[in-house]
């Protein structure tokens, strides 16, 4: 895995994306659902193109209505169902209830932003950074002007331990 230092474009970490305009730029957002939900609607307002490399999806509810525990998930599921018509996009936004036990977070803008023109949801794992962008496991290199690395992204960890010895296949 080549690290973020390989990337030659504008790299914004954690909150550095706030208060910026991305006019004319193509931007990759690397973050889990709960964080992408905060970043993407803001960035999509000005950017020419946003590629959302969403890591683990999370449940979202549109309003801060106090709901008893057992009703939170169904409410989030209903929100997703109503906000996203395309079943393939919806599938990739649905958390795996067995391993993701986080409470739904309040956000009413992410799903709409994802479906606006110029915004694409990509769920392939990213495995390397290159000078022009990122490489993901479906074999494609994605070139972008700016990479936003969410604080909760799997790539935000300081540095990945040195590469293992090539093991024999």
């Amino acid at each position: 895995m080549t690290g973020t230092e390989e990337y030659a474009g504008l790299l914004l970490r954690a909150d550095e994306w706030r208060g910026r305009a991305f006019t004319g730029m193509s931007v990759a957002v690397l973050a889990p659902g709960r964080e992408a939900a905060v970043i993407v609607p803001e960035v999509a307002r000005t950017a020419r193109e946003v590629k959302v490399f969403q890591e683990e999806p999370d449940w979202l509810v549109p309003w801060p209505v106090p709901l008893p525990g057992p009703l939170r998930r169904p409410a989030a599921r209903l929100h997703l169902r109503l906000a996203v018509k395309d079943p393939w996009i919806r599938r990739r936004l649905t958390p795996d209830g067995r391993f993701n036990t986080r409470r739904p977070r309040v956000d009413g803008r992410y799903y709409a932003a994802l479906q606006q023109d110029g915004c694409t949801l990509i769920s392939w794992p990213i495995y390397a950074f290159v000078p022009e962008g990122v490489r993901s496991a479906e074999g494609i290199e994605h070139h972008v002007d700016c990479v936003i690395l969410g604080a909760a992204s799997v790539h935000a960890a300081p540095s990945i331990p040195a590469q293992r010895e090539e093991s024999c296949a």
């Binding site: 074999g139 290199e141 293992r164």
Partner: peptide
């Protein structure tokens, strides 16, 4: 992860 390759 170590063995990933790209069309590029």
């Amino acid at each position: 992860k170590d063995k990933q390759w790209s069309l590029a």
